[in-house]
Nucleic acid binder design. Structure first.
Length: 496
RNA sequence: GGUCCUGUGGCCGAGUGGCUAGGCUGAGCUCUGCAAAAGCUCCUACAGCGGUUCGAAUCCGCUCGGGACCUCCA
């Protein structure tokens, strides 16, 4: 089997993955700012890195997955009135900042669980690590790469660039930045425009504020990730993940900060997911085109023809490679919904298939099935190519259904291949891709009642009493339960 | 303006220079009391124009279109 290769934004090509400590992987993913509700675009990185997390564990690594919660204020616009987003909104909503933060943190966790994302190993909050951030800022100042002005502290990018490789991750050149940085108000505190804040002095109206060596204020945006990643993963760790839109300035700034403090580029592999777009345009607050996850699930949004279940959304995301843009659309979502249903029903069928002999009756088919299963590992090793994994599973679906419908015999493939097929489907669908059954919800009483109706319908059909049998089927259909007559005379049901 | 990405069949999307993923739609057929599901077929595309090559969706150039970042952003 091949080894895992990961596209590394830092080197700009696929690198063979080798953890710093054999057997262990440290991964840091930029988490949400909990000043508002998560939208569809937010689902992408967390699903993407959930699969990365699951796959690394599948490979046998012991993984520490750190994903932060940004609950301290940022600036609406750097250099302008330093408005704490959370504080501003808190006034409007007449809520304590921490109450608001708690509300959206809870909502975020709810959405993550709906999407069947595993909890990270550690989920540190920015407000819980103010001391670590202050300490790190002090270290940067001691090294001479930060300066204080009026109670705020800025990172000296120009000096950093003179001695280190600034801009490598994002492909930025300092001179270009000088020319292209927008002319904003209140830049006078900075020595150079491209400098960024490590600590901001808090104006009186600012609610979230902490005591620091430079007076009362709050941390800059980039420092929290550097401080928390260092604390929980060390001066250098394996993977740093996030959306492509964080490449610059966020991750570039993280690299600068950590390089001064820790003498290392913080992560060896930088992994970035692409954006979800709406009509070709990035979904984000700048474009005012977000669809919240609660709206996605309920269908309560002008752009939505209907609601889409969490697994539909997860599957929709997984059907594309994570570094490609993914365009939102009702047609695409509905295609994903149907595709997932078909795949999952085949998986249910597969679980019930038994038999097969040691030697397959159809050598060619047997070989093809094995090949397609083993290829799935290759695809995952090739930069987590879930889209190709799913394509192979769809290729195998007709084989499964044909066995069920007796178009081909169980013994067409060997018992060993059948075992492999069953274990790969289970492993991939449930453990690696993190999909789950959403239909039945395990209601035993309902199941029992349906079995009874199926029994009555069978008896009616036996008497050729199609009036009764059709009545049962049609009325159940109206209730959203689909009865299917299988080839062998048995009946099964699915929830629409 | 700078840096970078991208343009694939009705829709969504894979595509490492040659063997032309996959899903969803649509059409036909088979099975079936009728349905549904399933199976089997079919519709076979690479923005345009040049170039490199025995051979290009894939490499190069130009033109046109879309987008990301440069500012909070997943």
């Amino acid at each position: 089997m091949s080894s895992l290769k990961v596209y590394n934004s830092y080197t700009r090509h696929k690198d063979v993955f080798e953890p710093i400590t054999p057997g262990h992987v440290g991964i840091y993913v930029c988490g949400p700012t909990v000043s508002g509700e998560s939208h569809l675009g937010h689902a992408r990185p967390y699903v993407t890195f959930d699969v990365v997390y699951r796959y690394l564990m599948h490979l046998g690594y012991k993984v520490r997955y750190v994903r932060n919660i940004t609950d301290a204020g940022h600036f609406e616009e750097e250099g302008r009135e330093a408005e704490d987003k959370i504080a501003t909104k808190a006034v409007i909503e007449k809520l304590e900042p921490m109450e608001l933060v708690q509300k959206y943190t809870n909502l975020f966790h709810w959405a993550m669980h709906e999407l069947n994302n595993l909890d990270p190993s550690i989920e540190p909050t920015a407000t819980g690590h103010i001391i670590e951030q202050i300490t790190m800022i002090q270290e940067i100042m001691q090294e001479g790469y930060a300066y204080e002005v009026n109670g705020s502290v800025y990172f000296d990018v120009k000096k950093f660039a003179a001695n280190y490789n600034y801009g490598k991750l994002s492909g930025r050149i300092l001179d270009d930045l000088l020319e292209t940085t927008r002319d904003l108000e209140g830049q006078d505190e900075k020595r150079n425009r491209q400098d960024f804040a490590l600590w901001k002095s808090a104006p009186p109206e600012h609610i979230m504020r902490w005591q620091s060596p430079w007076g009362e204020g709050f941390p800059g945006w980039h420092i929290e990730c550097s401080a928390m990643a260092t604390k929980y993963l060390g001066k250098q760790f394996d993977i740093h993940g996030g959306g492509m839109d964080l490449l610059f300035p966020h991750h570039e700034s993280e690299i600068a900060q950590s390089t001064i403090c820790n003498k290392h580029v913080p992560a060896r592999y930088w992994v970035h997911n692409n954006m979800i777009t709406v009509n070709g345009r990035k979904m984000g607050k700048s474009y005012n085109n977000q669809i919240r996850l609660t709206e996605m699930f309920s269908g309560n949004h002008p752009l939505l023809q209907k609601g889409y279940s969490p697994m539909t959304i997860r599957f929709f995301i997984l059907q594309t490679h994570y570094r490609s843009t993914l365009d939102f659309g009702n047609d695409a979502l509905q295609a994903a919904e149907k595709g997932l249903k078909r795949l999952w029903e085949a998986y249910d069928v597969l679980k019930k298939i038994h038999g097969g002999d040691e030697k397959p009756e159809d050598e060619a088919l047997d070989a093809k099935v094995r090949k397609q299963l083993l290829e799935m590992d290759e695809f995952m090793n090739d930069d987590f190519h879930t889209a190709k994994v799913l394509a192979n599973m769809f290729d195998l679906t007709p084989v499964i259904n044909s066995i069920k419908d007796k178009h081909i015999s169980v013994s067409a493939i060997s018992s060993g291949t059948l075992d492999l097929l069953q274990s790969y489907f289970k492993n991939y669908l449930e453990n690696i891709l993190g999909l789950k059954d959403e239909t039945s919800s395990g209601n035993d009483k309902l199941g029992g009642a349906l079995e009874l109706l199926i029994q009555i319908r069978k008896e009616a059909k036996g008497r050729k009493d199609y009036t009764t049998s059709d009545k049962i089927r049609n009325q159940l259909h109206e209730l959203g339960i689909l009865l299917k007559d299988d080839k062998d005379g048995s009946m099964s049901y699915t929830f629409a």
